[in-house]
Simulated scan of single mutants.
Amino acid sequence: MSTTQTASLGRASLVTWYTLFALLSMAANLGAQKLSWWTYQGSFGILLSVCIGTGVGLVVKYVLDKAWIFRYEHRSVAHGIQTFARYVAMGLATTAIFWAMEFGAQALFHTEAARLTGGALGLALGYFAKYQLDKRFVFA
């Protein structure tokens, strides 16, 4: 097998695993939102559910990316905290994309299904950008 074929297979595998982990994280995020919304539908219920879902999805994606995509090991607890902090910082811009799409869908269509669909689309776009940011600034 040529070097190009080997690199291509490696890249295809990486894309497959990253996509799978993004889908798992999206399911965790949207599932946590749904559970939160079922639990509390009062004032700021949607905002609370989106924040809880975002936090759950963030932790799931970080653990999977660190271990399986970037195969990254921390040198110490302090280094691990710094790495997670950079991961969160890189996620701020991508979270803005996700939230804009989710809240935009809610504002336009006023249904939970539309809001979650907007969230899923925003997450997909955000994860595409997040990989590039994480590769360059978090797990370098």
Rank of each mutant, 00 (worst) to 15 (best):
L47Y: 04
A93R: 01
T83H: 01
L14V: 04
Y40N: 07
A140T: 05
L125A: 14
G42F: 00
A124V: 11
Y131F: 14
S13D: 07
T4C: 09
A114G: 13
A140D: 09
Y131V: 14
M26Q: 04
L64K: 05
T117H: 08
Y62H: 11
T117W: 07
Q33Y: 15
F128L: 11
G104I: 08
I52S: 10
G118W: 05
F109C: 01
V63N: 01
M90S: 11
A140E: 11
A107T: 02
A22D: 05
I52H: 14
I46Q: 06
L116I: 07
L20Y: 12
S8R: 11
Q132E: 08
G118A: 10
Y72H: 15
R115K: 14
H110M: 03
L121A: 15
G104V: 09
G42K: 05
A96R: 01
S13R: 12
H110Q: 02
A107M: 07
G10A: 13
V63D: 00
Y62W: 03
W37Y: 14
F137A: 15
A114S: 13
V88S: 07
I97L: 09
L125G: 08
T39E: 00
V50W: 11
L14K: 12
H110K: 06
A100D: 01
M26L: 10
L30S: 08
S36N: 08
R11Q: 12
V63F: 00
T54K: 06
D65Y: 05
L125F: 04
T6K: 15
A114D: 11
Q106T: 02
V138N: 05
G118S: 11
A100Q: 01
S25R: 09
Y62M: 08
W99S: 06
G91E: 02
A129I: 07
G118C: 06
G122E: 06
L35N: 03
F128T: 09
K61N: 10
E73I: 04
G45S: 13
S49G: 08
G57H: 02
L121F: 11
K34G: 04
F44E: 02
R136L: 08
L125P: 03
Y131Q: 14
A129H: 11
L24E: 03
S43Y: 00
G53C: 08
F137N: 15
K61S: 14
A129F: 10
Q41A: 15
A27T: 12
K135G: 10
A114Y: 15
S25H: 06
S43V: 14
N29C: 09
A67L: 13
Y62I: 15
R115L: 10
L30K: 03
F139I: 02
T3C: 09
Y62T: 15
L125C: 12
S49T: 07
W99A: 11
Y40L: 07
Q33C: 13
T95S: 08
T111C: 12
L116K: 09
G80W: 03
I46D: 03
G126N: 09
A22F: 07
L14W: 05
L58Y: 02
L47A: 12
T3W: 05
S2G: 11
G57I: 04
R86Q: 10
L23N: 08
R75N: 08
T39D: 00
H79M: 01
A32W: 03
T54Q: 12
D134C: 13
L9R: 15
T111L: 09
Q132W: 01
S49Q: 04
L123V: 15
L24V: 12
Y62G: 14
R136Y: 00
Y87V: 09
Q132M: 10
A114R: 13
T54P: 02
A100L: 11
L48M: 08
